[in-house]
Every structure is written in C-alpha cells, then in structure tokens.
Design a protein around this nucleic acid. Sequence first.
DNA 1: ACCATTTGACCTGT
DNA 2: ACAGGTCAAATGGT
Length: 269
Amino acid sequence: MKWDDERGSKSSLRKGSSMKAATMEELTRGKKQAFRLLSLLKDLLSSPENQLAAELLVDVVGCFTRALSYLELEREETTDQPPRPVPDADFRPCSDERRSDLGRRERKLHTPRKINCQTRAYPYSCRTILSTTIEDGHIWRKYGQKDIYGTKHSRSYYRCIHKHDRGCRVTRHVQKTEEDDSVFAITYIGEHTCIHKSRDEEVISNHSTGSSSTLHRPLFTDLAPLTTEGSSPASLMADSVSRHGGSLGMEFDSGVFKLDDWLAPTEDE
DNA sequence: ACCATTTGACCTGT
DNA sequence: ACAGGTCAAATGGT
C-alpha cells in the first residue's frame, strides 16, 4: 500500500504560511484520509453490525467538510483575494477538445458557485449523498454532462425516466469526488412522484444485485423524515444502501442522514 | 428501427 | 461575462 501524504505537520508549519492556511491544509488532508479510509472499508461498513463504525466515519468526513466550508466562507468574507485555487496541482482539462466550454477554465479564476438549488430559484428539496455506486433502484435518463470549473471530474445530469409518462420531475447530478474516484457525490433535486413500485419489483431488484441480504426498504412514503424539512432523497440513498450493499451516505448542504434510519431492516407490515 | 448516450449550443442566474 | 443547467441533434449500440 502506498501512502503519499502522511506528513502533514511538516508542510503545515512551512515558513510564512498563516495559521489559517495551515489549518486548512490539515483539514484538507484529514478529509482526504478519511475518504480513503471510507473507501477502503466500504464493504466492511455496509454490514449492519458495523453500523456504528460506518456512522462515525461518515461523521468524521462530514466534520472535515463542514470545517473547511466554514473557513472558506470566512476567508471569502474577509478578503478580496480570489478565493479558491484549482484544487489539484495535476489538474488538467478533459481531453475532449470539442467541448466549447473548455477554454473558459483558462481565462479567469472565479469563485466556484454553489450549485443548483442554492443558485437557482428551485422550490424543490436538494440533497447530496456520497455513494460508491450510482445505482439507487430508480431508472434515470442521462440528459447532459458538464465540466465543472475547478474540479477534475465532469458532472453528469440525469432525470427520472418517468418524467413524461408520470410527470416525475426529479433530477440528479453525479460527480466523482475529488478525494476518491470510486466515491460519487450524487445530488438529488426534487422528489420522485413515480414511486408506485410493487413489492415484486423490489424483489426483482434485490435479486438482480445478487445480494442475499434480507434487508428490505419501505416505500418512500414510509421512510423516516430527515432532520431538515426536505425528505425524499434520503429514501433514495436508503434504497441504494440496502440493494447494493456498498453505498455510504452522509449529509451535505442542509440535511443530515442518519445511518441507522436507512440501514436498519424494516419490519414487514 | 429504436433507444440511450454524447455533446455543442443555448438558457438562466449571478 | 461566465459557470452551471438543460435541450436536442448526432451518434452509437442492440
């Protein structure tokens, strides 16, 4: 196994770097390492007996993420400096020359904007989860892909396949995390209104994954609510976890997902 | 032929 | 002006 950046304290005490910069550096490193651990242990943590460990680790990643956000916010408020450098030194644009947007990256440094429901007037709930799979038990139609400024992975856009026949307007976008290529950040915008799935479909879906798990998820409307006012994407994550066994959820933005809400087996009605 | 994905163009919000 | 989101024609797979 290769550990490439164990030596945080040395770099953080570099001459001339501020305490805040050093703090951010340490937090960034901590977050990255926590991600690696999460990725390393994902199979182990998906079993119910390791639920507490999974919860703790997800919380650790969340703490780092939040701490970095707070520092970033404070810096943006107190300085005129362009706030964020390109995150990776080895960052380079996607090789696809045809994309008209690519040249824009080079032109100017800008603060990456917050996405979607924070920048646009969407009346829908918006939640981001982390998962090792993009499968969540729903059928999605991809309708776009964009290179996102300051990130090395492009973002893919999906809408529910039942948009037209059932009027389901939920969308999601999927992007690999900077820290770990095998972990996806999946942001759900809106809620499924096409949720009338039969038990048969659930069984088929479970069976198709090859999983011998006896876990069953309730239908969306049965799920425990989030700690914030929004609701349904937690259920999407719950589906993902129970069916695919390797997914891990966590909070982002405004919602907190409780692992025990979606890992615990559900009792049959 | 049909359907899903890709991707350049366009739209929207800041 | 620009980043991010969406549209829709082109393309590719079956």
